[in-house]
Design a binder for these strands. Structure first.
Length: 306
DNA sequence: CGCATTTCCTGGTAGC
DNA sequence: TGCTACCAGGAAATGC
């Protein structure tokens, strides 16, 4: 419905949850889920496979926390029912890993379609968690704590963009090692975790860096500017509960309002808010990429020296 | 190992 | 109207 709601025409329609959207979800889930014990968990409308692996291990485990690393939600679990010590320390548990992918939604009410996982919890209503995922790019997996062998991106994840470990020095080190286009490296999650297509374009525009510039060619000033831009754009978006392009909603069904702050993403052919030059949309690494050709000049080709 | 390419998946939409 | 073709995109799998 409401095909034109005043939103910029992105031609995109999906949620595309990145760090701010996942953080918004995390904050809503924490108070609801922490301390609760799983009674039952089942896969619904989804084929068997690694994306929903380990659900049978959930019953009997208690959710200890709702954490986030990049775009991954990590829920450490504990087994409270070890024989003997009823009041003793909880036994070592597993870890529930949730990734929203493109269209994943964690809900307290049943969706009308595309339900993938249902989890029943002990305690007061609402006591059922529903994981809905139209395009099945998401994940809902239980693994032994810290065993990320089936999640290579999580295993090699860089520091979270909003964590104190994400320092300019660490960022510079990661960039120096890579010949990839800076935007492609950002999307890989290896140099920094949590930046996706929208915020990569926004941060690079803020920092005045062309997305195709090889990562190792960023000088100190550009590295610092990009580091600062990533933190700023993500923090501003978290404060507004993220960006709703179309489908994304907070757990309480609200829209995120960072959409109106987007400078380039979804604004191809419109004037750059800083200089007025027409914003271009190109394809980089199979991803739609928005760039102001004046604010983000293409890197000059390196001169050969004899 | 590093990097590029392909695959997964469905709803919306352009074009006829 | 109804059909086909195509597109969006994060992470995993595959291919050098």
């Amino acid at each position: 419905m409401a095909p034109s709601s005043g939103a910029p025409c992105t031609k995109g329609r999906s949620a595309i949850p990145e760090l701010p959207e996942v953080e918004t979800v995390r904050r809503a889930l924490g108070p609801w889920l922490c301390g609760r014990t799983v009674i039952a968990a089942e896969r619904v409308e989804a084929p068997p496979g690694p994306k929903y692996a380990g659900l049978e291990r959930l019953p009997g485990q208690r959710i200890e926390a709702v954490l986030r690393r990049g775009k991954f939600l990590l829920l450490p679990l504990s087994r409270a029912d070890r024989s003997g010590s009823a009041a003793g320390a909880p036994g070592p548990g597993d870890e529930l890993i949730v990734h929203l992918g493109m269209t994943g939604v964690v809900r307290r009410t049943p969706p009308d379609a595309h339900l993938r996982v249902r989890v029943r919890l002990a305690g007061p209503e609402p006591s059922t968690l529903y994981f809905q995922d139209v395009r099945r790019f998401g994940r809902f997996t239980v693994v032994p704590s810290g065993d990320y062998r089936t999640l290579p991106t999580l295993a090699a994840l860089g520091p979270d963009a909003l964590a104190s470990e994400f320092t300019v020095a660490a960022f510079a080190r990661a960039l120096r090692r890579s010949a990839m286009a800076i935007k492609t490296l950002l999307l890989s999650q290896r140099a920094v975790a949590g930046v996706g297509n929208i915020y990569a374009d926004e941060a690079l525009w803020r920092a005045g860096i062309h997305p195709e510039r090889p990562a190792r060619q960023l000088d100190r000033a550009r590295v610092a500017a990009l580091h600062q831009a990533i933190g700023a754009v993500l923090e501003e978006s978290v404060a507004l509960q993220g960006t709703t392009l179309h489908d994304y909603r907070t757990v309480d069904g609200e829209v995120g309002s960072f959409l109106e702050r987007l400078a380039v993403y979804g604004h191809a052919w419109e004037p750059c808010p800083r200089c007025g030059t027409t914003i271009e949309k190109v394809v980089l690494g199979q991803r739609g990429t928005h760039v102001c050709p004046r604010c983000q000049p293409r890197p000059r080709r390196r001169r050969h020296r004899a």
